[in-house]
């Protein structure tokens, strides 16, 4: 990728900063060595512990206004998806081009329902896909990593097939993941990011904790002002 351009006088901009920064008596504040230490749960979890994390996630997610389902097998998955299609009267859905979603054969599940499902990309050109994406009533994504303590989906756009448009534009969001994706909180996410990306982060990562909300009118909580109004978490058994 071509490097960007710098506008403005770098030297002039920095000169006041460098001139004004003082070293206080006792020296400048050092960098905090382990910023997360003692504040977040840091542990490796077993399969059994992740069952508990699933319960924790479900509690948080439903408190936030989402719906969550524990799913044992593909038959149950199909039933739940069909239930959601019915509940939301879905006609059109799109899903991430993600190997885990590919394995679930979503198109087969949708084939005997009223709704159609399309894999991203819908079209190649912006002017072609934007209208189609806006007409989609549901977006289906794979939760690469999920925080139980806050009820948060962490969705890095790890490949071009996993854009944030799918998770934020439609009124309904369906996130599918297994219990193996569950971590306690931020410590697990940082570990995952360090191992997978280092400081070379994906172009976007979206953390989603429940449905879109606002209290901008009279401080009354209202759901779904811009992003998803209905959010579903489908949690598969990792076995």
């Amino acid at each position: 990728m071509a490097e960007g351009l710098l506008a403005g006088d770098r030297e002039a901009f920095f000169s006041t900063i460098r001139q004004n920064i003082k070293t206080p008596p006792g020296g400048k504040a050092p960098r905090v060595e382990n910023p997360m230490n003692g504040l977040f749960t840091q542990r490796e979890t077993t399969v059994e512990e992740r069952q508990d994390l699933r319960e924790r996630f479900i509690k948080e997610w439903t408190t936030l206004g989402g719906k969550a389902f524990s799913i044992k097998n593909r038959v149950e998955l199909a039933q739940v998806i069909k239930q959601i299609i019915q509940e939301r009267q879905l006609q059109k859905a799109m899903y991430w081009d993600h190997p885990e979603l590919e394995n679930l054969k979503l198109e087969e599940i949708f084939s005997d329902t009223q709704a159609s499902v399309s894999r991203w990309p819908l079209e190649k050109k912006y002017n072609d896909w934007i209208g189609k994406a806006a007409a989609m009533e549901a977006g289906i994504v794979w939760g690469d990593i999920v925080m139980a303590e806050t009820g948060t989906l962490v969705l890095p756009a790890s490949s071009p097939g996993q854009p944030s448009t799918v998770c934020v534009l439609p009124i309904t969001l369906i996130a599918i993941f297994t219990t193996a994706q569950l971590v306690d909180g931020f410590a697990g996410v940082v570990k995952f990011f360090k191992e997978r990306y280092g400081t070379n982060l994906p172009t976007t990562t979206t953390f989603i904790s429940g449905p879109s909300r606002t209290t901008d009118i009279e401080m009354v909580l209202t759901i779904g002002v811009h992003g998803s109004r209905y959010v579903y978490a489908l949690i598969l058994d990792e076995a």
Binding site: P160, L201, G210
Partner: peptide, 15 residues
Amino acid sequence: VYNTLSTGVRNEEEL
């Protein structure tokens, strides 16, 4: 609800 981390310009293959 939404915390977004973005490094700016999209990659060539991204839409």
